[in-house]
Design a protein around this nucleic acid. Structure first.
Lengths: 224, 224
DNA sequence: CTGTAATCTTTATGA
DNA sequence: TCATAAAGATTACAG
């Protein structure tokens, strides 16, 4: 099954080679070879742009939810560096991440012709029934419960990964954090300068006056 | 640890970057990054020649015996096709085999410089394995207060922009939403099937049993 | 993803 | 005790 937005050349070539091709709309991946094998094809600045807007990791995760053996084809790999202002370190950082964290097989191809060839070989390989994959790798879940709890908190002002985890560690749930924030108040000096905090958040490192003042507006009833 | 036969440029560059490099004789792979990660580097007709004399599969097999997460770097991939009489179909056949059968991650590189960069990023990635527990989410910067409140809720299960706004409209703040969720319960039939909701969320369109059950896990104290 | 700039909190220091 | 400066961490942003 091939997503209908894929290049016509590839589809036509595979048909000419005698493969059963079904053109359809896919919600995950670009090519479905079997129940186990789904292929995502990234060409040129497809890759870089999907890195920059954080879309790539979502796509890869959905690949692994849909199939046990996803494969990524990197088409026209060299051109990836040409039409982008992205740092090569960032690009390889992504590839290393995918290799290390997901053990994701990535196959480079020079053009659509190579890509078609890869797809054909994949189909033939999959059809050889007695050759099952030696290792079906189980990939760790995208987010644990606590990670998702922390993830919610990253919507607040000046809260990134570190602070979010720190807050969840201390108050267990987002609701707990919000309640703690509501019952923390800012202490001022006699001259009216903010001095520090009083309440549940007072003892949390990295949380200060600015944090409380800014985020209270999010949590409490006020309008803008 | 780097096999002593690897290019001096790579070794020197890695040293310049401040990495601890040990030059030695390796019996398996070309680079050992950690106990789990061993890297094999194939450049130009290294690949084709090791395919033709059946040496490649032995090498890959030994990689998997030695480490749980081997990685193959394909250096100067395009040149692989230039100085060989091998059919591209055969070459891709091998890559497909490695991808399908072993789930072997393969990272293409244009030259030794890319390869060195990949190795550096691998070392850094392996070293930070224990931290980096969470993924950051990028907050769109132009946001009103209510938009930001809604954005926080988008961290929950099955909550996108649409549902988030609906919830903020109804309960004003994220704290309000979580409190509403905490005081909403699922009503079951006598046979134990979920029938509906009781509480503040009961009247919200698009919020159902599944939503409450999934997201209550975020609010309650439980672990995973 | 990476690299850099901007921002916040905390600690140190002097008045 | 307060105010300011410097240092350390973390987040925000651009590419």
């Amino acid at each position: 099954m091939i997503d209908h937005r894929e290049p016509a050349e590839i589809i036509d070539w595979l048909k000419e080679e005698g493969l059963d091709v079904v053109k359809t709309q896919l919600t995950v991946g670009d090519y479905i070879v079997s129940n186990d094998v789904v292929v995502e094809r990234k060409s040129g600045n497809d890759l870089t742009s999907s890195i920059m807007d954080n879309r790539l990791f979502e796509q890869i995760n959905r690949l692994y939810e849909a199939a046990s053996s996803p494969i990524l084809i990197l088409e026209d790999f060299d051109s990836i560096f040409k039409n982008t202002s992205m740092n090569p370190a960032s690009i390889f950082g992504v590839l290393v991440y995918l290799a290390f964290r997901f053990s994701l097989p990535m196959i480079p191809s020079r053009d659509w012709r190579d890509t078609a060839l890869i797809l054909k070989r994949l189909v033939l390989r999959v059809q050889v029934k007695d050759e099952d994959p030696i290792l079906a790798r189980s990939v760790p879940k995208l987010m644990t419960l606590d990670e998702r709890r922390a993830f919610i908190l990253e919507g607040m002002y000046n809260v990134g990964p570190k602070t979010a985890v720190k807050l969840i560690d201390a108050f267990k749930t987002p609701l707990g954090v919000f309640q703690a924030l509501a019952s923390t108040s800012v202490v001022y000096t006699r001259t009216g300068n903010p001095k520090g905090l009083e309440g549940p958040l007072a003892n949390i490192k990295g949380i200060g006056v600015k944090f409380v003042l800014e985020n209270r507006k999010l949590i409490e009833q006020g309008n803008e």
